[in-house]
Amino acid sequence: MSTFPASQMIVGGVFLMCAATTVAGALLAALTARIIRSVCGLAISCIGLAGLYYFLHSPFLALMEILIYVGAVCVTIIFAVMLAEPDEPVRDDKLGSTLLWGSFAFVVCAAVFWGLWQLGTHQDWTVPVARVSDGSIQAIGKSLLTTYSLAFELISLALLVAIIGALALARTGRDKV
């Protein structure tokens, strides 16, 4: 790998591409008026994020990001959108309240961004002496079933609640709607 000319530049370029994809997807998701396009933006952003995970030596996490967020979450959202609203949404003309909520959201986002920026630039980031984990499937599996087993089980509990809720909503059956 090291013998190949400009390999550093190629790696850097791929990294920039991943970061740009993430940001562009997020911007698309936030700025477009059509809801299908914002879901596409979300998907693009997730793919960029998966690339960033890959750069952090976590291929498992990267692929899971694609499998779950692009393959499941985005598809579910689009499906729900298609069932609900096939056409363009009517523009909301109440400019005053839009401005109010928009500025409120902007302030919140700016505060979060400022906090993260402060954390990123002023924190003394120490590199751990030993690598915490090698990011392999075995390491992830072990930590999911030991250190983080409670969180893991709680997530499955949340999914169970969602399934039971869906069943409760749909139990009247097709003919009784």
Partner: peptide, 13 residues
Amino acid sequence: FSFASINVMAIML
């Protein structure tokens, strides 16, 4: 499997 899951999205879109 993760890339195959994008397929659905393509047909749907």
